[in-house]
Design a protein around this nucleic acid. Structure first.
Length: 502
RNA sequence: GGCCCAUUCGUCUACCGGUUAGGACAUCAGGUUUUCAUCCUGGAAAUAGGAGUUCGAUUCUCCUAUGGGCUACCA
């Protein structure tokens, strides 16, 4: 039975890299008929951000990748928030001490800072608390037994550190990267239990993954360096380790480095699934609010680091569940491409029915329009739109008469005799009984022949009067859609306004 | 600096020893369109460098370079 977890810490909003990690966990779970769990890793009380947890849940809900176990959802292995499980970690740390796999350390952060500084001035930039240096520091391995007891009884501050074995190769097989080997001489005596009574990520993570019967750990590559420590911890507890899969990172589209929360608005695209407003009132924009469909966002994200091995690019969430496999996740980091995201969005917009789009458009408009009208507007505009908003902003003349007339088109097309020409056309237009696009087109062509004029000399004028624009969908469709009366009004009003300008 | 991971068109990627190195986005050209968008056709565009292994390397190994991650009582 596959059980995977997404384990964010509530230190802020979840950015797209995190969403992708959640997505891959979700896909892997569903693909294998397993369970997808969310666990909140809030062991760092200093970095807790109000509202972050709610944001994470809300964002996942929007993306359609909700877990089936987690805070507020339920499940047999709760609680799913680490701060609510606080009491259960210490016994495990103590057990490690008893088995001589860990020890008490009494050095204060300030003392260690001094040691680090000294090491640095001596040309060692990378001082570690490890098998060698620990012999000169204050811990239960160096201090006399009774002093350790005294300090503990005294309530002195202490941490519990991993007693990293010397010169041992730790090997594990990553599902994505293959075998990874690290020698323990490069690893330090990581703190497992902090002086504030909280476990560190490493301890809490291993204990919870074990207790929650996690079978596969799918997480970002930034965890790869600490995976050997985790493997060692499983060994120390005598537990079977889960499978590991370390996902490639999402990189900045421009320069070097991994995607960070400030990149988005600086480069003109969101890095967050939904809007996030900081306590200071600063806004980080999200895909949802920018008008992206969650399907488009998820589709784009799914292909950033994974591919199906076929040319198919459009995937529903269900398709992804069918096709997904960790074996096809790539090893190298992916630069995110905002243009392609827009392309996905446009594809999904077009794939929706006019009725569906009209409903969405209707929700966005303050002024209410008849649904039948909005459906037609969507039909005329959706091929040229990327977002729902575009349908309105680029086609609002379909709903209301133009307020202004495009300067360029006026300058280029509106001539001395244009008013007269359009008046003649108006007379013909108003004489049409059945005001269909086909009939208007027939009459228009006849008019051109009669006047001996090309289509390019006349139709732009007609478009200008009816829409105020120089570009847009079929003029005959537009005229038919707004109707004879409205066409008459717009032509008359337009001529008046443009003549004044001229 | 140390450790780990990675490296195919501008970007995302396919290829799991033998291909004219394929696709998508973007880009350019042509066609369609009153126009713009869509759509159609076509073009340009890549195996980081060097050694090996092999009859044969994009593919396997090593070195170098580059990029990235980690290096906290943060996750």
């Amino acid at each position: 039975m596959v059980r995977v977890r997404f384990a964010p810490s509530p230190t802020g909003p979840l950015h797209m890299g995190g969403v992708r990690t959640a997505l891959y966990n979700y896909l892997f779970a569903k693909k294998n008929k397993g369970t997808f769990i969310i666990r909140i890793e809030d062991t760092d009380q200093n970095r807790f951000v109000e509202g972050a947890q709610e944001y994470i849940m809300d964002a996942m809900k929007w993306c359609g990748i909700m877990p089936t176990e987690g805070p507020g959802i339920g499940g047999e292995y709760g609680p799913y928030i680490q701060s609510e499980r606080q009491h259960l970690y210490k016994p495990y740390a103590l057990r490690l001490i008893k088995d001589e796999k860990a020890y008490y350390a009494f050095d204060t952060p300030d003392e260690l800072e001094i040691v680090r500084e000294q090491a640095k001035t001596m040309g060692m930039p990378n001082w570690q608390y490890n098998g060698i240096t620990r012999t000169n520091l204050k811990n239960s391995l160096t201090l006399p037994h009774d002093e350790v007891e005294k300090r503990l009884a005294n309530g002195d501050a202490y941490v519990i550190r991993m007693k990293m074995p010397r010169n041992t190769d730790v090997r594990f097989e990553d599902k994505i990267r293959g075998w990874v080997t690290v020698n323990t001489n490069n690893l330090d005596d990581k703190v497992l239990f902090k002086s504030d009574g909280m476990p560190t990520y490493h301890l809490a993570n291993i204990v919870d993954d074990h207790l929650m019967k996690i079978t596969h750990v799918i997480r970002g590559e930034e965890w790869l360096p600490s995976a050997p420590l985790h493997v060692l911890l499983y060994q120390a507890f005598g537990w079977e380790a889960p499978e590991f899969a370390h996902l490639p990172l999402l990189l900045r589209p421009d320069g070097p480095g991994k995607l960070s929360k400030r990149d988005g608005d600086r480069l003109g695209f969101p890095v967050f699934p939904t809007n996030w407003i900081t306590a200071e009132g600063e806004l980080y924009s999200g895909y949802r609010e920018k008008g992206y469909f969650p399907e488009a966002f998820i589709n784009m994200l799914s292909l950033l680091g994974w591919n199906p091995g076929t040319p198919q690019e459009i995937f529903s969430l269900d398709d992804l569940v069918q096709e997904f496999s960790l074996e096809r996740v790539s090893k190298s980091g992916a630069k995110f491409d905002a243009e392609k995201t827009k392309w996905f969005q446009a594809q999904y917009l077009r794939s929706k029915s006019n009725e569906e789009l009209a409903e969405l458009l209707s929700q966005k408009l303050i002024k209410k329009y008849d649904k039948i009208i909005l459906i037609k507007v969507c039909e005329l505009m959706k091929e040229r739109a990327t977002f729902i908003d575009d349908i309105y902003t680029e086609g609002k003349y379909l709903l209301d008469k133009p307020e202004t007339y495009d300067e360029n088109t006026v300058a280029k097309k509106w001539k001395e005799d244009s008013a007269e020409l359009m008046n003649e056309w108006k007379t013909i237009l108003l004489a049409i009984n059945e005001f269909t696009a086909e009939n208007i087109e027939i009459k228009f062509k006849e008019f051109l022949t009669e006047k001996g004029l090309g289509i390019g000399a006349v139709l732009p004028l007609f478009r200008l009067l009816l829409t105020g624009q120089g570009i847009g969908p079929s003029m005959f469709e537009i005229a038919s859609f707004i109707g004879k009366e409205e066409s008459r009004n717009r032509i008359e009003e337009g001529i008046t306004k443009l003549q004044i300008k001229h």
